[in-house]
């Protein structure tokens, strides 16, 4: 263990602002990417599901819906 206390850990020998802003921005950017990926996946699946329902239903005879 290289730190005498948690206060020393957060202070980073006086360079805490530099070190923690580097890591904070990394966490924010990566979390944003994960959120964007999850949201866009959900929205495209919703969109495609609606798209196919609108397009397919009138054309399909009722007997065709049994396999879903």
């Amino acid at each position: 263990m290289t730190w005498s206390s948690w206060g020393a850990f957060w202070a980073m020998g006086g360079d805490g602002l530099y070190v923690w802003s580097a890591y904070l921005v990394a966490i924010v950017v990566i979390a944003t990417e994960i959120a964007v990926l999850a949201l866009s996946r959900r929205s495209i699946l919703e969109h495609l599901g609606r798209f196919t329902r609108i397009n397919r239903k009138p054309r399909n005879p009722p007997a065709d819906e049994t396999h879903t």
């Binding site: 290289t2 850990f9 020998g13």
Partner: peptide, 17 residues
């Protein structure tokens, strides 16, 4: 990086970036 690596002789803790 934060708990095992020692303090740098020239840069102190700053090098942990």
């Amino acid at each position: 990086g934060f708990f095992v690596a020692p303090t740098d002789a020239h840069q102190g803790e700053h090098y942990r970036i």
